[in-house]
């Protein structure tokens, strides 16, 4: 650790609570062996290509298009999940209606439902001869086996993130601030947009980023419902699997490293949003 080398500042502040050494050591050991070492192996494998090699893989038209599909559709899906997730969160916390608790419980379904199960269920639902797919086909929308299918699967897995990050904050909004705003003559719309919404923005952004990160990497639910067509509906994780089937380990690793870098940046952004929100609003 670099920190311990600096003599003046202590790495850790004094505390009467015991167990730091063992728990910290255990944490680092597990983290190192399970997460960091294998990820390092990935980076080493990809670095065999050199930076220029990785760049070449990234800009290969098929890879670039798969990355575009994964990131582009995930962006749209996260946006949709955030908007509707926000509405769902608002409705679930603010309004009382029959079945509210049930609806609240259902939100977590994508956390608990295995992706493969979600995949075959969505595929059979949105296929041209499926329950929803047939209706969509009637109005000329092909859902399954197109990027629309990828979008549906990504909204599915992203929704709980969008709802669950915002919901507790809505619950904690001080109603009296809204009342004060109303007393001071603001219309309901003004109150909502000027008083209620701003403190929610960091949470909405966090939920958005989580849904986005999850969508980019998603594989299980998507392969069943996407057409997997190069340049159209082929996602980056599938391309990794395809590269592996072609025995192109370095190429697979390069795509993985690119995705990893972007995920890491997304995560960092989430943590920055949270740090900023802690300073700005006093909570996460």
């Amino acid at each position: 650790m670099v920190e311990t080398l600096k003599p003046r500042r202590r790495f850790r502040q004094r505390s009467v609570i015991p167990g730091f050494g063992i728990t910290f050591g255990y944490t680092l050991t597990c983290l190192g062996l399970i997460v960091l070492l294998p990820l390092a192996a990935l980076v080493v494998k990809a670095s065999g290509l050199g930076l220029s090699g990785i760049w070449e893989v990234a800009t290969d038209p098929r890879v670039a298009s798969a990355l575009r599909v994964s990131f582009g559709v995930s962006l749209l899906a996260a946006l949709t999940a955030s908007v509707f997730g926000g509405i769902v969160a608002w409705v679930l916390t603010r309004y009382d209606f029959p079945g509210r608790k049930l609806a609240d419980a259902v939100v977590d379904l994508p956390f608990a439902l295995p992706t493969a199960v979600a995949g075959i269920a969505l595929a059979s639902l949105y296929a041209p001869n499926g329950l929803v797919g047939a209706q969509l086909a009637r109005i000329g929308i092909e859902a399954a086996y197109t990027p629309v299918g990828i979008f549906i699967a990504m909204v599915f897995i992203g929704l709980p993130f969008a709802v669950r990050t915002v919901q507790p904050l809505i619950a904690e909004i001080d109603k009296e601030v809204e009342e004060a705003s109303a007393i001071l003559g603001a219309s309901r719309i003004t109150t909502l947009t000027r008083v209620v919404l701003p403190p929610l923005i960091p949470a909405v952004l966090t939920g958005f980023a989580l849904a986005f990160a999850r969508g980019v990497g998603e594989y299980g639910s998507i392969i069943f419902i996407a057409g997997n067509l190069p340049y159209v509906s082929e996602i980056a994780p599938l391309l990794i699997v395809i590269k592996l089937s072609e025995f192109d380990y370095a190429g697979a690793s390069a795509i993985a490293v690119i995705m990893l870098a972007i995920s890491f940046v997304t995560l960092l952004a989430i943590n920055l949003i949270q740090a900023w929100s802690r300073r700005r609003f006093g909570y996460v």
Binding site: K45, G217, V241, S253, A256
Partner: peptide, 22 residues
Amino acid sequence: VTLIDLPFSVSPVVSGLIYVLV
């Protein structure tokens, strides 16, 4: 904390791939 979170945003396919590489 960010490193502990990392697996969460790694694509499942990549999670498998890294163990193949090791």
